[in-house]
């Protein structure tokens, strides 16, 4: 899978002059691990790819997060239209490197850009999104107390580029509020025996655009802590994103996922490659 993907990306690089949408480079963001346009772990209000008004766009991506005792592999794709609608799918495979075994989850997302324009309006760009998450290996999450093997997350995001802010560079700010029942974003199922209510969490990120193609940023993702068997902590990361052109971007980062399933201080790397048409 990965090699075929890399091959496809090389073809893309070679044909970098082929049609892309009209949006300015980098304004489609990257693909987050849930498939929605965003940073690495936080969705943004931007719509994936480079389709501006009345234009279509498609993206495909693969990402990997490697921390002390776990590895998360993701691949996915999205289609978007009119810089308004974004439909995405992602398959996550969470490898339990120390315990053995793996957990798979699929995420189907839709995002609608309600108001504002990232670059051009005083108001931020505002979007609402839904993510339907379906666990494919529910035995273990169930054994540790999860109630359901699927769940729907609802989020509102606001994103804005502020020009000429930090040493003359542009600043990208994002805030997301999410309603979720997911434990460890769904990798440990949804809800718990004692609590099946939605939890409200905040996710934020900020990035400095060093130039049109390179951004340096930080992300923070608040998480619920619903399962009794182990504590769940907030996630954070530092990243560098390189939007090589409107067809290929690469993101690398350092992540701190806190405690997962009783394994503390899960820190490591993040790497993601996206192709856009």
């Amino acid at each position: 899978m990965i090699t075929r993907f890399t091959l496809a990306l090389c073809c893309l690089l070679a044909s970098a002059s082929s049609v892309a949408g009209s949006k300015i480079v980098a304004t489609g963001g990257a693909s987050s691990i849930e498939g929605s346009a965003g940073g690495g772990i936080v969705p943004w209000a931007v719509i994936n790819g480079y389709g501006s008004s009345d234009e279509w766009s498609a993206t495909a991506f693969t990402s990997r997060v490697g921390v002390d005792d776990f590895t998360l592999n993701v691949f996915g794709a999205s289609v978007s239209y009119d810089n308004k609608w974004e439909w995405s799918v992602a398959r996550q495979t969470f490898k339990l490197d120390s315990i053995g075994g793996e957990l798979r989850q699929d995420v189907f997302g839709v995002k609608y850009h309600i108001a504002g324009e990232l670059l051009y309006t005083a108001w931020p760009q505002i979007s609402v999104g839904l993510q339907y998450k379906k666990h494919r290996d529910f035995g273990l999450p169930q054994a540790v107390g999860a109630r359901d093997d699927s769940g729907v997350d609802v989020y509102f995001s606001a994103s804005k580029v502020l020009f000429d802010q930090v040493a003359g560079r542009n600043l990208l700010l994002n805030g997301t509020v999410r309603a979720t029942k997911a434990n460890q974003t769904g990798l440990l199922g949804f809800g718990s025996a004692s609590d099946n209510n939605y939890q409200f969490v905040f996710e934020g990120s900020a990035a400095v655009l060093l130039n049109y193609n390179v951004a340096l940023g930080i992300e923070f993702k608040q998480k619920p802590d619903q399962l009794n068997f182990a504590t769940e902590q907030h996630w954070r990361d530092l990243f560098v994103a390189w939007f090589i052109n409107k067809h290929v971007s690469v993101v690398g980062g350092y992540v701190d996922l806190g405690s997962i399933a009783g394994f503390d201080q899960q820190q490591g790397y993040y790497i993601s490659v996206e192709g856009a048409w």
Binding site: S22, S52, S53, D54, N83, G168, L210
Partner: peptide, 24 residues
């Protein structure tokens, strides 16, 4: 449209890059 506006801004950026105007 938004796409037209994006197109014009993209052209302007290309020109400023060619003229080596500072990012700031």
């Amino acid at each position: 449209t938004l796409a037209h506006y994006d197109a014009l801004v993209e052209n302007l950026i290309d020109v400023m890059q060619q003229q080596q105007i500072s990012i700031s």
